[in-house]
Write a protein that binds this DNA or RNA. Structure first.
Length: 243
DNA sequence: CGTATTTGACCTGCGC
DNA sequence: GCGCAGGTCAAATACG
C-alpha cells in the first residue's frame, strides 16, 4: 500500500510538473509568496509522513519557485506529529517524553484554536522548540510541530532500556539523527476504548484511515522478521554511535 | 518561596 | 514606509 501510495504521489507530482512547464503563466497553481501559503506548503511536504526530512527531499522542487531558500529552513529540522486526544480536552499538552516549558500562546488566522509555543526545559541549552495546535479539521487531533534537534538524551530512554517494557521508543537519537522522535505505546495489542486515548497516533494527514487498518499495518510490521531485524540494527547502531 | 503558566506588549519578516 | 501576522519576551499570576 505504501509503495502504491508513493507511486501515485510521484505520478501526480510528475503530472503537476508537466502541467506547470506547459502553463508557466498560470498563477493559480503557483504558490503564493504570502506567509499563509508558505505554511500550507509545509503541510504538503509532511503529507507523506511525520518525518520532516521529506521537506528536504522536496526542496529541489521548491527551488524553482523560491529564489533562495532561507538558511533556517535548511538547518532547522522541522517535523510534524499528530496526537489524538479527547475532543473535550482543551489542554494543549502533548506527552512525548520530553519536558517542555510553555513560553507563549497565539491565535493564528487560519485556525481559531490557539497555538501554544514550548521550549525544551530538560536542558537549558537545548534549542528544540515545539508548537502545538488543534487541527482545523478534527478538533480531537493535536498537531505538534517540532523545530530543531535535542542535544540531550530522552529521559525515558533509560527506563526503556532497563527492562521496563512499558514503551518502546522509535526514531531518533537526539544527538545524531535528523529524524523526528515518534513515541508509540506498544503495550496493548488490542486497544480498548480506554486505551485509544492513551495511544499517540502519528497520522499521515488522513483522519479517515480506519483504526482497524492502522492496527493491521502495525501488526504486520511487528510480525515481519525483516522489519524487526532492521529495527534492531537501527537501534543498536544508534547506541553504538552514541557510545 | 520557587517554579510554571498566562497574556499583553513588543519584535521581526514579508508583501504591498 | 506601513500594515499584517507569526513568534518571543517578561511581568503578573497561579500553583504546589
Amino acid at each position: 500500500m505504501l509503495t502504491e501510495m508513493c507511486e501515485n504521489y510521484n505520478t501526480l507530482r510528475n503530472n503537476l510538473m508537466e502541467y506547470m512547464r506547459k502553463n508557466p503563466d498560470n498563477k493559480e497553481l503557483s504558490p503564493s509568496r504570502k506567509r499563509k501559503s508558505e505554511s500550507s506548503n509545509n503541510n504538503n511536504s509532511n503529507v507523506i509522513g511525520v518525518n520532516g526530512n521529506n521537506s528536504e527531499s522536496s526542496s529541489s522542487d521548491e527551488e524553482s519557485y523560491k529564489k533562495v531558500p532561507r538558511e533556517e529552513t535548511i538547518k532547522a529540522k522541522v517535523s510534524k506529529v499528530y496526537f489524538r486526544t479527547e475532543a473535550s480536552d482543551s489542554s494543549l499538552i502533548v506527552k512525548d517524553g520530553y519536558q517542555w516549558r510553555k513560553y507563549g500562546q497565539k491565535v493564528t488566522r487560519d485556525n481559531p484554536c490557539p497555538r501554544a509555543y514550548f521550549k525544551c526545559s530538560l536542558a537549558p541549552s537545548c534549542p528544540v522548540k515545539k508548537k502545538v495546535q488543534r487541527s482545523v479539521d478534527d478538533q480531537s487531533v493535536l498537531v505538534a510541530t517540532y523545530e530543531g534537534e535535542h542535544n540531550h538524551p530522552l529521559p525515558s530512554q533509560m527506563e526503556a532500556t532497563q527492562g521496563s517494557n512499558r514503551s518502546v521508543t522509535l526514531g531518533s537519537a537526539p544527538l545524531s539523527s535528523s529524524a523526528p522522535t515518534v513515541t508509540l505505546d506498544w503495550t496493548k495489542s488490542k486497544p480498548t476504548n480506554e486505551s485509544k486515548n492513551m495511544i499517540i497516533n502519528p497520522k499521515i494527514d488522513s483522519p479517515e484511515v480506519p483504526q482497524i487498518l492502522v492496527e493491521h499495518m502495525a501488526t504486520s510490521l511487528t510480525k515481519d522478521p525483516n522489519f524487526r531485524a532492521a529495527l534492531v540494527a537501527a537501534i543498536s547502531g544508534k547506541v553504538l554511535h552514541k557510545s
